[in-house]
Design a binder for these strands. Structure first.
Lengths: 239, 239
DNA sequence: ATTCCACAACTGGCCTACAAGTCCGTCCGG
DNA sequence: CCGGACGGACTTGTAGGCCAGTTGTGGAAT
């Protein structure tokens, strides 16, 4: 595929996704674009064309629009009528709020889990953390982050609630956009993050809500502090 | 308007809403249906026809579908392909989760406000509570609830965050659906709720995070306990 | 009387065409 | 040379129709 063709695809990457007829088209488009935004393959401020996407997926604008509308309500894209649809720029206040919401929920989760332990959760978490230790050794950033996702999601799901995990994942996604601006710079943090994960899990399993809450709070704030540098290194992606 | 005509409108009420050309049509439809669902004018399990709505609003199905899709992601309606769109039935586990999420956020809000007081917020809250006292005296359920909304929203907005208020409002809306099943039965609770609102505000303004958090927790659980009776009185609306 | 099947009515998913607004380059007049 | 008006090439918004799948009904066969 030539460089010119890539431009025609509006910067949406070269791997053309094929639609699976068994799953709803809007879902597939939604997930595809969302992942491209989170992973910074679609850059903040970049224009997204409904027509281009429609050609790319070989569908009409209708399912594309449905996907973009959902991304819009979640804050990943901004639809400006008669002007275009754009990947939202990052902003510190937005990220700060994401941390606030996420911390509120994560703290509530570990508090509940420490009060009411779930053994199956502990087993799964420990396996995830073991894998994450391997990923840290191999400096596999992508894998490490996926396992980070799964760790927090496993905690949330252990409460038995169905939507909390999704809500946490959403706020985490907004924070991950910033994190993915400079993934390589974070390799030094792996051991630190891993230690905090263990501290959270240990506090939960020892049945100490206050300790678990404190460990999660510390974890959230440390993660956020790492992100604070991003606007300095990449001001063009911030409002 | 005759009873027959009402049936033709698919139970969506008799007041035909006129679209405001200045605002996006999907937004208006979204808000209209959402409010009808929250206020129990559209009952859980009831079928919603896209075509009927399109006629009712004198628009095509396109903006209607956009509104219904948004309502679907928020859990107010359920779209079953080739079968129909239905108002979601209530479920205790869903409401319990709504309380969990809402309590997490509200607690975090008052905690932050107690640590960092905002005087303008206090002024507005006190005015709201004064009005709410009047509404309680007049046993005006609708007004009381609207002011309840505004009280919690004012607290959330005082943090300076833009999305927290909306998130709280959403979970509150799901709880209000249950509450609106038996509004009249709650008149005895007005003074109790009002007292708790004052306790929350006082704790915030006295700069005591722990007290504010505890007051909000108590408030959330008391409100939830009121809702627990609903499935017994109205089992047909629950899954 | 009961079971099964075919058909008609209706649903949401998707497509195409058109409407309305924005942006930018070009051309004309000064 | 400069400035403003105009037009064309975009953008998203909306309308309306077709399609595939589901459902309920009524008639035929047992």
């Amino acid at each position: 595929m030539t460089e010119d063709t890539r431009k025609l695809l509006d910067g949406l990457g070269t791997t053309v996704p094929s639609v699976d007829y068994k799953r709803p088209t809007p879902n597939q488009v939604f997930e595809y674009i969302r992942d491209e935004i989170i992973s910074m393959q679609l850059l903040p401020g970049q224009k997204i064309s409904e027509n281009t996407l429609a050609e790319k997926f070989s569908v009409s604008r209708t399912p594309i629009r449905e996907a973009l509308n959902r991304l819009s309500t979640l804050g990943f894209v901004e639809v400006r009528p008669q002007r275009g649809t754009f990947v939202t720029k990052l902003s510190m206040s937005f990220i700060l709020e994401a941390r606030f919401i996420r911390e509120s929920l994560e703290v509530a989760v570990v508090n509940q889990l420490a009060e009411n332990r779930v053994d199956s959760m502990a087993m799964e978490c420990e396996k995830i953390l073991a894998d994450q230790a391997k990923a840290a050794k191999k400096k596999d950033a992508l894998l490490f982050q996926q396992l980070d996702d799964r760790f927090h999601m496993t905690l949330a799901d252990a409460t038995g609630f169905k939507r909390v995990g999704g809500a946490i994942e959403l706020e985490k996604a907004h924070m991950d956009r910033v994190r993915n601006l400079s993934l390589v710079e974070l390799t030094g943090q792996y051991e630190h993050v891993l230690k905090q994960h263990h501290a959270i899990l240990d506090a939960i399993m020892s049945g100490s809500p206050q300790q678990a809450v404190q460990a999660m709070r510390t974890h959230m704030r440390d993660v956020f502090n790492i992100l604070k540098i991003a606007p300095v290194n990449h001001p063009e992606f911030f409002v």
